[in-house]
Design a protein around this nucleic acid. Structure first.
Lengths: 107, 107
DNA sequence: TTTATATATCGCAATATTACGATTATATAT
DNA sequence: ATATATAATCGTAATATTGCGATATATAAA
């Protein structure tokens, strides 16, 4: 086969994995870094900043949108989007909670 | 094509993406959760706990090992491994730093 | 040394991701 | 209404991931 057996895992495990998947590409890290550092939400120069073709950037943006990390207008010319702060901070907490759950003292 | 253009991104961006990639599968999240919650480092029952075939578990463990998140003995019978606490906490900080860098107030 | 037990590796098929050229859709300006 | 600029979608090739059966390897016990 080759498809992930998502059904044998918990919702929480799948959700964290899915969020991690969005961060699992340097282009998407770079895009998120860039957008989150902007004062305003004009992001038409992403293609120049990142250095990938326009359809590729569009695809990556779509991955980021799908988990709700961006908000704003997404159609037509002069689109305007920025980080969805609530989702952003929720994810931060989610990752933090995952990493905080550790209790071992062996090896 | 189809291969990631890793060379056009910074080392930090690639490293964070690579770490996220390891977390980007529910099986690996489940494996890490399980190991990190163990008091001792006996993990021979991972196949039963997770519910994937033994070679598949072995593959996932290898992905986790590759970024240094596990330490211990990895060969032969009765292997003994656990979370590499230093790397674990370094990653936690790394993700936290990424999520902390945000300054926008638009949309 | 043989046997039992557990993990690693190989090989392969199914699926997913990545990237981009070509095209289409959308919105603004003229 | 037409032209222009920008983003989304389509189609496709290359590559990567996922999963597991079969097999090899390593350790411990008899």
């Amino acid at each position: 086969m080759g498809a992930s057996k998502t059904h044998i895992f918990s919702i929480a495990e799948n959700e964290l994995a899915q969020a991690a998947k969005v961060l699992a590409h340097p282009a998407r890290i770079a895009i998120l870094e860039y957008i989150s550092k902007q004062e305003n939400c004009i992001c038409t120069d992403l293609v120049d900043v990142i250095g990938l073709a326009q359809p590729t950037i569009s695809q990556h943006l779509n991955e980021i949108k799908k988990i709700g990390l961006l908000k704003g207008t997404f159609e037509g010319k002069n689109l305007c989007y920025c980080i969805n702060r609530e989702k952003w901070e929720a994810l931060q907490q989610y990752f933090n909670a995952f990493f905080s759950n550790i209790n071992q003292n062996c090896c």
